[in-house]
Nucleic acid binder design. Structure first.
Lengths: 353, 353
DNA sequence: GATAGCGATGATAGCGGTTACATTTTCTCG
DNA sequence: CGAGAAAATGTAACCGCTATCATCGCTATC
């Protein structure tokens, strides 16, 4: 029964290491019952081909009988490697990262890996803390979001033998392996798209200006391209706080009232864009005729609204699967060298542009 | 520099346990430099008040100098407890669980805990596998979603001393602690709400009928209450596969074409409901006059669309914070006994009903 | 028939900490 | 000032498993 339930009055002296009635079986117990040494049990469990079928059978029976589960920490300590993958993302709420996370998990769970997840909250210092504390678990690999890190984090990442993957961004100079796409080029592509669609004056709704530097890269690409194809600098407004639809709607309204000549708006992500889209409808601007709206992310939802939201589809799932693939190779030792994998993105044109 | 980068031609024999140039410092190194025993170092690190300030200073200096990080696995093995919290959720993509996850993390990260996350994909067998493998890490606590488990999982959960929290659901008979709300009552509340609003004939759009039994409990509450307040059994359609907006729109259209008399629809969640809402607009049904639509979850987005989506707001964040709170107490040993915490939900009426 | 070769298994030293217990140092106070 | 208690530190036995190396039969080889 559950320990710790006070009702029985058993005051368990804190700190006293007591084995409750049925102790969790150890490998030694299995070995004893099967009549072999622990070394053989260990082998039978991790490299069965080294053990004779007969003994293997006895061990399996003992394991079954005791319902033995190896203590992974002991194993990890002894072998100096654990079946754990550390993943650091800047936000758990952001559905984009969740999809990537799920894909990593799918690609690796079968091989018995567990995901150790950390949330950096878009803060480089928090990321550094997480990196060092995750490395203290000797994970089989560590996945971080982005290619920009604090000095301390950089040192820790370069200094370890754990395979490192930087995701959701590209760089010429990866610590080890980078898997993602060019954030900047997204801005470029949308600006060009607006041009093609005949927009006259561009606008931009951003968020977390100083913290989310990936979003900032998109913005930079958008602004530079706008200028280079003949626009004046896009009108801009930044959301206070996290990007939500409600805030997006409000910010969009401000943008349009300050710059009524704007006729094409890029929003930092789809959530914001959808807020803007609805606000536009409420305000009576016809989309896409009078006003074009484009988001980033291609959330499930963008395809369902009316008009459909044009957006940039990101390889969120592909990133995760690729990470899993690379990591499997990497851990198996086949792929000693890192590299950069550009998974691209896709501008999905729907009704809103 | 990074190990494993092939360029230098160093073929590192696999399996050979080699220390790269600068070995990771061990506690013994710190002890030597500080001129004390490892026991003292260990104490200085985890119960500083037991060590004299002077020695503490020397140790801190040595730690700093070597940039020593304790090997958490060794510590966990020796102390039979790890600063790890296992959390099993049925889906990582589902934003609801993500919010709870983030809240758990927020409430616990400060205390140095790491989240070990598993995805059960709404499968009880997968959950069982995850439970046993997570328990093999001796986590400080284990959080599972829901109160229904396979026999094997149940046995494992009852048999361990690790504190267990069942979340997102209530039960009269928790394994240890349950923190959530009544799924069934949500269905009840929405049925009553429709009645109050004068609906004549109810409809229901569901998903994952056989897998997501929590959604099923909502459905049951809705159907039973519908009957008990005088409706005939709601017209129903089930989505094939995961609940998405696009599928929701389609299923909703089917429902309405098969049962044109339906004038109030409960959708299993907001994503589906929003698909339905837009489809309704496309089809020219006026909302809420001709047709009322209600979702579940209160996603950010539900407040932004036009008309606003009526929905049931779930205590997603509150659940996570409560879990963190209970766990902190629990781990500190103050709160030996479990219990059931009903965090309730709230029907949020917006324009769509 | 002695020897090498090979597969299967056992013995055992760690992995890097934690902690019960022993020991030493420092107070406290009659 | 010395005894006893309290505080600070050291000693060493684990935690439970992995991995190296030694050992033990047996068969293949000359």
């Amino acid at each position: 029964m559950k320990g710790g339930k006070g009702a029985d009055g058993t005051k368990s002296a804190p700190g006293l290491r007591e084995r409750s009635g049925t102790a969790r079986p150890r490998m030694a117990d299995v070995a004893r019952i099967a009549g072999v040494s622990t070394a053989t049990v260990s082998r039978a469990l991790r490299q069965p081909e080294l053990v004779s079928p007969e003994v293997r059978g006895k061990i399996a029976a003992a394991v079954e009988h005791l319902s033995y589960r190896p203590n992974l920490m002991a194993g990890a300590l002894a072998s100096a490697r654990s079946k754990t993958i550390g993943v650091i993302i800047p936000s758990m709420i952001n559905a984009f990262f969740s999809v990537t996370l799920e894909a990593i998990e799918e690609g690796l769970a079968g091989a018995g890996y567990q995901l150790l997840i950390g949330n950096s909250h878009y803060e480089l210092e928090t990321e550094e803390r997480l990196i060092t504390s995750m490395l203290a678990w000797s994970p089989a690999a560590l996945v971080v979001t982005g290619c920009r890190h604090s000095r301390g984090a950089m040192r820790a990442l370069l200094d370890t033998d754990v395979p490192i993957v930087e995701m959701w961004e590209l760089t010429d100079n990866p610590i080890d392996t980078a898997i993602g796409f060019s954030q900047r080029d997204i801005g470029v592509a949308v600006a060009r798209h607006f041009k093609e669609r005949g927009a006259r004056r561009l606008g931009f709704v951003g968020a977390m200006h100083q913290r989310d530097y990936r979003a900032d890269a998109r913005r930079a690409g958008f602004f530079e391209t706008a200028l280079s194809v003949g626009y004046e600098a896009p009108a801009e407004v930044q959301l206070p706080g996290l990007p939500t639809s409600v805030r997006g709607a409000k910010a969009f309204a401000e943008l349009m009232s300050a710059h009524p000549d704007v006729d094409a708006v890029l929003c930092t992500n789809d959530i914001v864009a959808l807020g803007a889209l609805f606000e536009a409808q409420r305000l009576g601007w016809s989309v896409p005729e009078r006003l074009k709206i484009c988001g980033v992310g291609d959330v499930d939802f963008a395809a369902a609204c009316e008009p459909g939201l044009s957006t940039v589809s990101l390889p969120r799932r592909a990133i995760g699967l690729k990470i899993a693939e690379v990591l499997r190779e990497r851990i198996a030792g086949n792929l000693p060298t890192g590299g950069v994998h550009d998974l691209g993105f896709e501008l999905v044109r729907r009704g809103s542009t």
